[in-house]
Design a protein around this nucleic acid. Structure first.
Lengths: 146, 146
DNA sequence: AAATTGAGTTTACAACTGTAAACGAAAGGT
DNA sequence: ACCTTTCGTTTACAGTTGTAAACTCAATTT
């Protein structure tokens, strides 16, 4: 059975479409197009293409509503975000990820609640954290230097 | 003057090459190719292409050493990582970024030192953090729901 | 000096992306 | 029953990316 491929990669432009649908829960193309035309200087045709690609790749599902479709997400927003972020990180030097987090957190607006959640996760993580994480950019020889 | 374009986008495959050069500080193509052939199943020709593209886009600089070149980074590793991570985050719903961080931090191995740095940054950040960060996926109307 | 080797440069090529016009069929108006 | 509006589908097209062979010189070997 062609199980819902959760591996569907969403491109930058498609991400904009998904955010609309995720936020609204579901939407018809008119709504999506209307909102995106206002946010970007995209032509309606461009947005139609993006919607079509998202349906084809299994990120959006459709329900027939008379003559048109209602689109709804087939993948969860938080899961997509988690995957995207983890994928991005996994391609960077393991030794430098911590500093990248520091920078990203400095740059990102976070709510008190989020910050508290992060602190407690980090405190728990601290109890089993290694003294150092070594560079994994080379096969085995040499020594790292981020 | 064509100032060194720091905006140079590095693709996934190119990232592998950069990590080698960043870690070694500098390297000739033989070294880069040798290490990458071992890490991936890339042909030497593929790696040559990637090196050439990185030089063209200003991510690697060259120094002539007899018949060959010595390559060295023209962009800093940490800066590239910071930019990549921030760019990725900026395309996601602002309201959901905190949870994405939590997930990413759970999944990432971090040193005690990194964790402590994160905690203190977060504690400082907490003093000026807003109660909530709202969804920025829509123009103005509607309400968010990540 | 001729042959070989090795480093960088060109060319190749399909898939994916961003961007969008053109088209076809169904629905609605007159 | 026609014309028009709409919505989704097809087609288009250049630029990017992953992947790699072919080619061009200069240097090294015999």
């Amino acid at each position: 059975m062609p199980t819902t491929e959760l591996t569907a990669t969403i491109t930058d432009a498609e991400w904009r479409v998904m955010r609309i649908v995720w936020t609204l829960g579901q939407a018809d193309s008119h709504t999506i197009i209307d909102l995106l035309v206002r946010q970007h200087d995209w032509k309606p045709a461009t947005i139609k293409t993006l919607i079509g690609r998202l349906v084809k790749k299994g990120a959006l599902g459709t329900t027939k509503d008379g003559r048109q479709y209602i689109y709804h997400p087939l993948i969860a927003e938080q899961a997509a975000m988690d995957t995207a972020l983890t994928t991005e990180l996994s391609q960077m030097c393991a030794m430098c990820r911590g500093k990248a987090f520091v920078h990203a957190i400095d740059e990102t607006e976070l709510s008190q609640e989020d910050i508290q959640a992060l602190i407690s996760h980090l405190q728990k993580k601290l109890t089993t954290a290694p003294t150092a994480v070594s560079c994994d950019c080379l096969p085995a020889d040499y020594e790292g230097s981020c």
